[in-house]
């Protein structure tokens, strides 16, 4: 298991591994927003938490396609499925690797981008905490989507279509916590809900992911 995690991280950091792509995408989306909505600082401050959350979500979504399809294409996925690792575990590790290479950098980058969007001072801690709690759920749900569409021709677009509705509750609670925090209101309730979703998905969704992956490997 640890070996798999190390390998996935190695692969991500090597040339062509795609590490940083998500981060760069997050950056570019966030920078494009003021161009689209205008430079008014007060207006940007209002939408900043939501924009950061949406940017993080899209950056996550963008990198999901590679999560399993690379291993599928070169045959490693078949070999992993016949290895003495439970498939649920393999997929949990894959989600963890995805989070470490995509989700975690987003959490760290969010405050920097918050400056560009005039995020109110109270909001920094909230955006970081909510992303920290929420992005693991994005990775785990995304792994389910990737397992559903692995091996499909043109699976990428379908993957987005399937995963987006599943992201709705996470996005709502995460962005709500960040927004309330930025406005100086109490954001503990949505944060708790977010944590609940994250824990629930981490505990249960790998079983569904493994089930669909087994079907896809047949």
């Amino acid at each position: 298991m640890i070996a798999l995690l190390i390998r996935d991280l190695q692969l991500a950091f090597r040339a062509g591994g795609g590490f940083g792509l998500g981060l760069a995408f997050f950056l570019i989306v966030t920078v494009m927003v003021p161009f689209a909505v205008g430079p008014d600082a007060a207006g940007l401050a209002v939408i900043a938490p939501g924009v950061l959350w949406l940017g993080a979500l899209l950056a996550c979504l963008l990198s999901l396609d590679r999560l399993l399809s690379l291993d599928w294409e070169d045959g490693s996925l078949d070999l992993l499925a016949t290895a003495p690792l439970p498939l649920e575990g393999v997929l949990s590790i894959k989600a963890l690797a995805h989070w470490l290479t995509t989700g975690l950098p987003l959490v760290l980058a969010a405050p920097v981008l918050g400056v560009l969007l005039h995020l109110p001072a109270a909001g920094y801690i909230w955006i970081m905490v909510s992303l920290l709690i929420g992005t693991p759920a994005l990775s785990v749900i995304g792994t389910f989507g990737a397992a559903l569409t692995v091996g499909l021709k043109r699976g990428g677009l379908l993957l987005s279509l399937l995963v987006m509705p599943l992201y709705v509750p996470t996005l709502i609670f995460g962005a709500e916590a960040a927004r309330r925090g930025a406005l100086g209101l109490a954001g503990e309730t949505p944060l708790l809900m977010l944590a609940g979703i994250t824990l629930g998905t981490i505990a249960l969704l790998p079983f569904a992911s493994a089930a669909v992956l087994r079907v896809n490997l047949r």
């Binding site: 389910f144 559903l148 399937l162 509705p165 599943l166 709705v168 509750p169 709502i172 609670f173 709500e176 309730t189 949505p190 809900m193 979703i197 969704l205 569904a208 089930a211 669909v212 079907v215 896809n216 047949r218």
Partner: peptide, 27 residues
Amino acid sequence: TAADLTSILCLVGSVFAVLSRYAVNFW
């Protein structure tokens, strides 16, 4: 294969649909 995958999507989707309902109410 399609039947298997869509069934599981439907089951998982139902859970998330209910979650969304609560999330949206709250939001």
